[in-house]
Amino acid sequence: MPALTGDGPHAPDVVVGPLDLAARVDEALAVQALAFGLSGDEIDIRRYIVLRHLQNPGARALGATTVDGRLVGFVYGMPNDRTHWWSTVVEPYLRRTGTEGWLDDSFVITELHVHPDFQGRGIGRELITAITDGADEPRSILSAIDVESPARALYRKLGYQDLAGQVLFPSAPSPYAVMGARLPLRSAGGRGN
């Protein structure tokens, strides 16, 4: 996938393109720690999880970098597999709402984070749109903390709808919502749903 420069307000100082997430995992986790509020112990656990996820078939990542190479945002995901831990946790919640079919033929957004100093500039939108544009699956799913937030507002603007709420992940302090969207996502140019 060629590097993309956005047409949003962040251009031309940030470029979205392919990311070797395994090689830059510590930089990505530093962004996630700032954006999501992670402790050092949580970062260590997530490093292991990210590196394990990247071994799955079809896993890929995009990064948002400044012109001097600083990583300021990233997204990664993969085709969903019902045997993965995330799917086994959310499946009962989706079954209750009659939406468990979304676990099949979906590209799951595993993580999407933008450095707080760069939020609100269209970078998150460009990252998620670019990665799902490369998906072979007809739809995308993700989980987000189940509160009204700028992230949830963005997902809704892109076409994601709530599939299940108040999803409890072991050791997570807050409940999550599972959201799904048909691909391609909506965009500012009117493409998609």
Rank of each mutant, 00 (worst) to 15 (best):
Q55K: 15
R191F: 09
R186W: 12
G120M: 00
L112P: 03
V50T: 13
M78L: 15
G124P: 03
R152N: 05
S171R: 10
D7F: 15
P79W: 07
L34C: 07
L94K: 05
D26C: 00
Y176R: 08
G180C: 09
S174T: 14
W102V: 05
G122C: 03
P9Q: 01
T99Q: 15
R191Y: 08
S171N: 14
E27D: 15
T66G: 04
D7E: 12
M78T: 09
Q161E: 13
V31E: 00
R60I: 06
T65N: 02
A172P: 08
R156Y: 05
L29R: 14
V147N: 02
L158N: 05
R52T: 15
G40L: 05
L4I: 14
V16T: 01
G37V: 12
T65W: 02
Y155G: 05
I45H: 10
L94I: 06
L103T: 03
V108S: 11
G77C: 01
Y155W: 11
S187F: 14
S140A: 13
V114L: 03
H115G: 03
D136Q: 09
L112D: 04
R186G: 01
G98F: 07
P18K: 10
R139M: 04
L154S: 11
L185D: 01
E148Y: 12
E42C: 10
S39V: 01
K157S: 14
L185A: 01
V89P: 02
T5E: 11
T97P: 09
Y176A: 14
L142Y: 05
Y76D: 07
V114Y: 00
G101V: 00
A151D: 03
D41I: 06
D13V: 04
L154N: 11
F74G: 03
L94E: 08
P150W: 07
L71G: 04
A144T: 11
Q119L: 01
M78A: 12
Q161M: 10
E27K: 01
A181N: 09
I45S: 14
S171L: 14
A151N: 04
I145P: 00
R82H: 10
T66I: 02
T65C: 04
G159H: 06
S174N: 05
S171A: 15
T132G: 00
D68V: 13
G69V: 08
D13G: 10
L103P: 04
G192R: 14
R96S: 15
M78Q: 12
F118W: 12
Y48I: 15
F107E: 06
L38P: 01
T66F: 02
Y176S: 12
Y93N: 07
R121I: 03
A130L: 02
E91R: 09
D26M: 02
I45W: 11
H53D: 15
A30M: 01
A64V: 02
D117P: 00
L29G: 12
L168Q: 12
D44A: 13
L19W: 10
D7C: 10
P12F: 08
G98Q: 13
H53V: 07
A11L: 06
P57S: 15
A164K: 06
R24C: 06
A30E: 05
I109F: 07
F169Q: 09
Y76F: 13
R96L: 15
D105K: 10
